[in-house]
């Protein structure tokens, strides 16, 4: 058995320790907001948080999650109220949307560590999250907008 928490809820699963965390999240826990993209940590679509750090869940074995706290896009906020989610809606960021949960999870780590990121900070943080639709300019604007929300105290 492997035990960890997902979005604040404790889970104990009888699963092969080498199973990719992404498989467990999607297949066992039915949290399908996290996407499978490349399967080799090249695109960022599968990004989740383990103890608050961005991790590519497609290459992380579920054993890495043992005893830790996992956050998926479903747990970023209960009601789309995270400043990044609000900014994403206001800037109308997604096109096809497939990569966006991974983009948001990476952006959340960036904002936590750098509440007022520069364009360079954003480029460095988001460099491993690929968007085939090319929404990068809107992603950048949305991150700046979310940072402003946080600075003005209008968001958690």
């Amino acid at each position: 058995m492997i035990g960890f928490s997902v979005n604040g809820k404790r889970v104990d699963l009888d699963v092969d320790p080498s199973t990719p965390l992404l498989w467990v999240i999607r297949e066992q826990l039915s949290l399908t907001g996290t996407k499978y993209g490349c399967g080799m940590a090249q695109c960022g679509a599968c990004t989740v948080h383990i103890n608050g750090e961005a991790v590519r869940s497609c290459v992380a074995p579920v054993s890495r999650a043992e005893g830790k706290s996992i956050t998926t896009i479903e747990g970023l906020s209960p009601d789309l109220s995270h400043p990044l989610q609000r900014a994403w809606l206001e800037e109308d960021v997604p096109q096809c949307g497939y990569c966006q949960s991974g983009q948001l999870m990476s952006a959340a780590v960036l904002l936590r560590e750098k509440p007022a990121p520069t364009d360079e900070d954003i480029d460095e943080a988001m460099t491993g999250n690929i968007c085939r639709c090319g929404t990068y300019p809107r992603i950048r604007r949305a991150i700046h907008r979310a940072a402003e929300m946080v600075a003005k105290g209008g968001a958690r």
């Binding site: 080799m40 940590a41 990004t47 750090e53 961005a54 991790v55 590519r56 290459v59 992380a60 074995p61 890495r64 999870m105 990476s106 952006a107 780590v109 960036l110 560590e113 750098k114 900070d121 480029d123 460095e124 943080a125 988001m126 460099t127 491993g128 999250n129």
Partner: peptide
Amino acid sequence: TMDIRRGPAGFGVTAAKCSTCHQDHNLGN
């Protein structure tokens, strides 16, 4: 690739840390 940086402590930056993709062991392929 991906313009990965050293970062303030050698472990990468913010959402692009070494541990974002690298495990404590090699992967099989």
